[in-house]
Amino acid sequence: MKFQNTYSSRRNFLLVAAAASLLPHLAFAQVPAWPTQAVKIVVGTGPGSQTDMVARLLAPRLEAMWKQPVIVENKAGAGGIIGTEYTLAANDGHTLLMASPSMLLAKYTAPKLRFDPLTDLIPVYRVFNTPVVFVTNAKTAQRAKTMAELVELSKSTQQGIFFGGAGPASFFTVSMSALANPMGLRYSTIDYSGVGPMILGLLRDDTQLSISGYLSVKGQIDSKELHALAVIDSTRLARLPDVPTLEEAVGYKGFLPISWGGIFAPKGTPTAVVDVIARTFGALYADEPGRKLLEARLAGAGTLVESSPAQFSKEYEEEAIVWEKSLAGRETAVSQ
């Protein structure tokens, strides 16, 4: 009997030892060999937008780390809805979405939306944050040199001034609807298919005001074709030290929409793949020389963010609550 107990114990020990020896191999087997083909990063805006610029800055660095081509593809229109639908339909395990808050806002601004931004997409990594600015053109600046003067100018006609947006569901258009009434600004909206056409409309004086990420309009501000009137943030932008915050400009103290860019994967993407993507961004940002080079290319208009799927998901859900409350209580300004 003693022999049997000894034999049984030895057999159990050997089984446990054998199982333990397999654990590293099983764990390794669960880590996907990803990517196994070219990775596509879909941007829901046209070329020239800040999200597009950042995606193209990151693509060659991601290629070097993943050892696969990384293709940035623009699918502009409908405030990011077209790009999101394209990403969800790809279903190839290698198509990701580089999105801005516009994609989230579609949940509250597009009644016939065919996807749910909160359940059909997995937040993987919040790539960058960027404040946005109110900009006008040189012709309008001759009549209104400050944001306060532009507010007064907007009251001179029933329709107000023309505001250029990037689509009814876009971050810029929805932000304007949340900010205008507290400022007392009257406006009519002209929505364009993307940031590029939106800026062109402003330059042509088809519109007199827009909201934009600084990087998208830096060249026109430097050339004096466009004029920054106010920064939508609690502090001034380092590259625009003479441009006041919205509170400094008009005394605004409400909700301040801050733009960001983040990587999303379609629902159903394996957690292991999501972790691989997130770790890649973490390693990319941990490289101090590379990080400084990227931030220099951002021209001080954005901040790279250390993130994770869990942290980004939490921030994403919290922002959805803020936007839902803000939009539920808004009053629509003069609309076209």
Score class of each variant (00 low, 15 high):
Glu248Phe: 10
Met176Ala: 14
Val124Ser: 12
Val274Trp: 02
Gly219Leu: 07
Asp242Arg: 01
Ala20Pro: 00
Ser49Trp: 05
Ser234Asp: 14
Pro111Asp: 08
Val39His: 01
Arg204Ile: 08
Ser223Leu: 06
Phe264Leu: 15
Thr45Arg: 01
Asp205Thr: 13
Ile81Gln: 04
Ala89Arg: 10
Leu96Ala: 07
Gly83Cys: 03
Asp275Phe: 02
Gln142Trp: 12
Asp116Gln: 13
Met1Trp: 08
Glu324Asp: 14
Leu62Phe: 07
Val334Ala: 11
Phe115Trp: 13
Met1Phe: 15
Thr207Ile: 08
Leu304Glu: 07
Asp120Gly: 11
Ala99Thr: 06
Pro131Lys: 04
Glu152Tyr: 09
Thr87Lys: 04
Gln68Phe: 14
Phe13Ser: 09
Gly79Lys: 04
Leu57Phe: 10
Leu200Trp: 01
Ala265Phe: 06
Thr189Glu: 14
Val124His: 07
Ile82His: 13
Pro289Gln: 07
Ile161Thr: 08
Ser170Arg: 00
Thr332Met: 12
Asp116Ser: 15
Asp191Leu: 06
Val124Glu: 10
Leu104Tyr: 05
Ser212Tyr: 01
Ala228Glu: 02
Ala27Trp: 02
Pro289Ser: 08
Lys218Pro: 10
Phe28Ile: 02
Arg126Tyr: 06
Ala55Ile: 09
Ala90Ile: 05
Leu15Cys: 06
Thr269Lys: 03
Asn74Glu: 12
Met183Pro: 02
Ser335Gly: 07
Val132Cys: 07
Gln220Asp: 13
Thr109Val: 13
Glu324Trp: 12
Glu331Val: 12
Thr207Ala: 12
Thr51Met: 07
Glu149Pro: 05
Asn12Ile: 10
Arg291Tyr: 12
Ala328Leu: 03
Asp191Asn: 15
Thr280Ala: 13
Asp222Ser: 09
Ile82Glu: 13
Met1Tyr: 09
Pro111Ala: 08
Gln30Asp: 08
Arg239Thr: 14
Ser216Gly: 12
Arg186Lys: 15
Glu288Asn: 11
Leu284Val: 11
